[in-house]
Amino acid sequence: MADWWPHGTTLEPTEDLVNVLPGILNSLGEPVKKLSPPVPYQVTIQEALAKALQDWQANPEFENNSLVVLGRPVEDLGPIIKASLHEGLPDCDVHFFLGGYQRPSDPLTVREHLKHELDPGAQAPSAMAPPVTQTELDNQVPTVMVVSSLEQCFLRCIQGWEGIEHLQTLSTQDTSRFWVFGCNYWAWAFLERVCQVSAYWENVVELPHLSGTELEDWLMPLLKTELKTQSAGPLVQIAAASDGYWNSLANTSDGIATTAAQVWLKSLKMRATALTDEGTVADGAALLELLPDDKPTLPSLMPLEAMDRYLLHSLLIHREMTRSHLAISLGEAECSIRSRLQVLRREGVVHQRGRQFSVQPGHYPRLYSELGNNNFLIGKS
C-alpha cells in the first residue's frame, strides 16, 4: 500500500533525523495491534455495565435490559468490549455472538441470518415471552448476550435495517437476558433517524477521549521493549517523549486510540547516521533507536470529489464494507465507484483488507470536519 503520510516533517536537534524506513515502520504496526485496549476504555464500559446490570436485576420489569457502547467508526469495538467483559463479569454467563460477522451478499437476508445465529429456537415475535420475575433473576446466573458490531447487522439501503429491528424486538421482549451492543456514532445517528434505536436501547455509554498521559500509559509496553521488526534486521527501541509531546498527540488525534497510534508511529524518526548512502540500515547495527517528532501531525487529506464524500460517509457508517455493499448503499453500479475507491486507496485514505474496505484512522479527524461541513449526517468525533 502506498505511504499515506505526508513527508517533510522535520526536527531541529543537533543531529540529522530522517523518516523511518517503510519496512520497519510497517512491521511496528503489528505490536501496536496486539496491545490490550486502553484501560480508560475498559473501566468506562465496566462501570457502566455494572450499574446497568444492577438496575436491571433490582427491577427487571421496568429497567432497560441492555447497554450500548458507542465509539468512533475507526475503532473496532469487538476486542474492546471483550477485554472489558472478560474481567468485569465474573458472576455472569456471557455469550459473544457474531464475532467477525460479515453481512451476507444480499443485505435483505441479514434478518434471517441473525435469527439463526442468535437464537435459532426463539419464539416468534407474536408470541411474547412473559416478563421475568425478581425471584427468577435472584435464583439464576444472569445471562449476558453480546453483539459488538451493529454496523454489520444492517446496510444503508431500502429495507436494509430489518436486522436491527429484529434485534430490537428480540432484546426487549425477553427480559430474562441482558444485552450488550457495540456501535459507532455514525451508525447510531443513522439508525436513530430510520428506526429510533434509542427508544428501545436507552442505556448508552461512550468511549472517552484519551489524555496525553493515558495514551503514554497505553503505548508504554512498546517504549520499554526492544522490538524485533524484521527477521534479518536490527532490534528497535523507541525513545521516551516529553509530556508536551503526549499532550500534543492527544490534541492532534482527538484522544482516539487508533488515530493516535498511527500519528505516533508516523512521528517516529531515525538518525541519519544509521543509514548507508543507499538508504539501508548500516551493516552491523544491532539496535536502532527511534525518536518521536516533537510536533505530531495528521496526514494531509487529498481534495475530495462529491463521490468521494459519499463513499467515505458510507464506509464510516459501516466501519468496513465490501465494494458490492458499498455500491448498493450508494445506489450506484459497482463499476462506477471502482475508480474513485482505487484513488482513495492509493492516496492512503482508505485501507483494503481482503474484500473489505475501511477508512484509515489517521484521516478520521479531518474527514469528520470535511463531511460535517458538507452537511452529511455524522456522529460525534
Rank of each mutant, 00 (worst) to 15 (best):
H7T: 14
N19F: 00
N19H: 06
V20Q: 08
V20D: 07
E30H: 11
P38V: 05
V39Y: 13
V43Q: 13
V43T: 15
K51Y: 10
A52C: 13
D55L: 12
F62E: 14
E63N: 14
V68A: 08
L70V: 13
L85S: 05
F96D: 03
Q102K: 12
R103Y: 00
P104K: 12
S105F: 07
L108E: 05
H113V: 03
A124Y: 10
A127P: 00
V132I: 14
T135A: 13
T135S: 12
V144E: 04
V144A: 05
S148D: 14
R156Q: 11
Q159Y: 12
E162L: 06
G163R: 00
C183Q: 00
C183S: 00
N184T: 03
F190I: 05
R193G: 00
V194L: 06
N203P: 06
L210W: 15
S211Y: 14
G212H: 03
E216S: 12
L223F: 15
L223K: 12
K224V: 12
T225N: 09
S231V: 14
P234H: 04
L249R: 04
T252I: 11
T258D: 15
A261M: 13
A261W: 13
A261L: 09
L265E: 00
S267T: 07
T276C: 13
D277Q: 13
A282W: 03
G284P: 11
L288R: 02
E289P: 05
L290F: 05
T297R: 09
P299T: 12
L301G: 08
R309C: 10
R309V: 04
S314V: 06
S314F: 00
H318F: 01
L330H: 09
A333M: 06
E334K: 12
C335K: 03
L341D: 00
V343D: 02
G348I: 02
G348C: 04
H351Y: 01
F357D: 00
Y364L: 12
N375H: 08
